[in-house]
Design a protein around this nucleic acid. Sequence first.
DNA 1: CTTCCCAGCGCG
DNA 2: AAAGCGCGCTGGGAAG
Length: 572
Amino acid sequence: MFLLLAAHADGAALQELTADGAPHPAAAAPQLVDAAELPAVVRDLEQRRPRWIWHRTQDWYPALLAAGVELERCYDLTLSGAILAHSEFTAHTAYAQNAEKLTQDDELQPPRGLQPPPPPADQGALFDDPDWRQPSRPALEDLRTEYAAQQEALGQADGSGAGATPGKRQRLQLLLAAESAGAMIAAEMQHTGVPWREELHEQILAGHLGPRPPLGHRPARLEALTAELRQLLNSPALNPDSPQDLMRALHRNGIEVKTTRQWELKESSHPAIEPLLAFKKLSRLHAANGWAWLDAWVENGRFRPEYVVGGVVSGRWASRGGGALQIPRQVRGAVHADPGHKLIVADASQLEPRVLVALAQDSSMAEAARGKDLYAGIAAQGFGGDRAKAKMALLGAIYGATTGESGRLMPQLARMYPRAVGFVEHAAREGEAGRTVTSRLGRSSPPPSERWRHSQRATSAEEQRRADALARSRGRFTRNFVVQGSAADWAACWLAELRRRLRAIRADGTPAGELVFFLHDEVMVHCPDAAVPGCVRAIEEAAAAAKELLFGRIPVEFPVSVAVVDSYDTAK
DNA sequence: CTTCCCAGCGCG
DNA sequence: AAAGCGCGCTGGGAAG
């Protein structure tokens, strides 16, 4: 069952659709629902297990969650439209070609059918009416047309799979489902929040920085380090937070650095370096995750960041506010399970290299990946057992390193694993030539900008040099995109499969854990003690399911390492 | 005064 | 040891 939900007057309009997006013949007229009644109506309809189709998950789901309504599945028209408009799998469709026309002038314009209605003609008179600049709320019929167009494009994605290998249409359909599920999970995780013990965070801060200072003042420990630095560098007014100021002071004292980055400072043995590095470390803690952060982002024992699904071109999530995807190790001790609960922290070990093995179907590297530690396997096969070397070589191949240690190791890696290295090299060539590359499930890299294409028509030698540098830079991007993007595909499926299993456990009436955090290749579940074993199993089964959804039955494992802990800092 | 960019560093 | 990918956030500092 497909139910389209659109904004209407002071509430919503609801319409049942067929699978291809036509109005369902049995219920031709949309149902109008008052905003106040909506949660109850939706809860009631959910019993028929529909797929909810809506413009943006963010517009509807948070309020429903706040009203206590959880839903099983949805179709997010904005996220799906963005994928379909750019995917190589649908590039030949009318949908993608129309989208391209519409976005030629403005990269950020949403797919057709999703633009907000133009403001009313007498907009000037409404200047102080807050309503006219509200975010887009497309009408039901526009959304229905858009859904039908997306389904048509999806149906035209060519190729069903060979044997057990999923074909392009299936993969793209899977990606849209996983992306939409991700949008629901993001809203649910924001609703639930990460369990965060403020008093533990404050203990960490006090231990490093001293007691909480008055507003606008440096904490005692930073004050003391500043005084010490001013003396050691003979600079009584030095502000060590200012790179320019600091650079001048360092130069006056014969410390000839080109930047003030920590690794460059470490080269010097001047007595001021040690307190300076200590200052930088603590200053960072204070500025990014200090008392002000705690005041702004943690409430009633929960950290509730906003996740931005589809916020990264590769398919990774981004976040807005609170730096949710950069929780430093220093403060992870404050992430603490409630009484009678555990945190289950699971991460996919060496995800990107393993994804590369599967993408390239490199059987030699698959052999090396049989054990828990892929890098050790590679080291044993050809780097004299030197794991660090093997790791640097492989990451260098994925990132496109050309110089330094990892650049030097590339030829050997290429001899050992011609298929895996050839795969990323091919992606790099495509990018250098201005073409697009695509993840396993069909998310494509953006085309080069007009400025980039223009640069490639260089005439002078100087222009040519710059053009080549830009081309290589884009090659590194597309090289990484196929791996990072496919890893994001895998992670999205892992997450969606895990959510499904946790819901199934809960539906039995058994207590189950809740997803509270997701970070590229890592999930955190907050779980009643009794539910831990079932939850761990769900995490592992979901990982196996994700592999099969992406690649079919192939002899490459994606092991997850699972830690059951009270506190996040003891997870790794 | 506000707005924008940079350097630096946190995460994967 | 210090290159190569993707992000967000902060304070400083320049530009408007």
